[in-house]
Amino acid sequence: MALAHSNRPLSPHLQIWRWGPAMLVSILHRVTGNGLAFVGLSLLLWWLGSIASGPEAYATFMTYVWTGADGGLSAITAILGKIVLVGLSWAFFQHAATGIRHLVLDIGVGYELSVNARWSVFTMIASVGLTALFWGFVLLR
């Protein structure tokens, strides 16, 4: 970069700051958003394409992502698939909660330090709670 040899002071990076809830959920918002964009949408399109391609393609999708019915490689990818799907559902709930937080901040409220920290912590409680509720409903009903 053009400024590589400049003697001007650098702004402090991650390791300098004392971690706080607002900083954490800001990072989580970016990480979950990009995870959903790259992993989530790829999986969604594979799923849609497999349904459109017919029963065999759909069976392949289900085997590798969920059931592991063919054994071997699919048994491993099915474990990963379940972790990824639960992770994606949590990522959605976290990204949605911090997204709603951003929409609220956009109207100009919630900037007091204590309020901001409380709402930040709440987004993480909400995402974990909603993920547990969703999978509890899916698996136990």
């Binding site: 969604l44 399109l45 849609l48 394409g49 349904i51 459109a52």
Partner: peptide, 8 residues
């Protein structure tokens, strides 16, 4: 995605 959904 849309071609797939239309086919479905």
């Amino acid at each position: 995605g849309i071609v797939s959904i239309i086919r479905i």
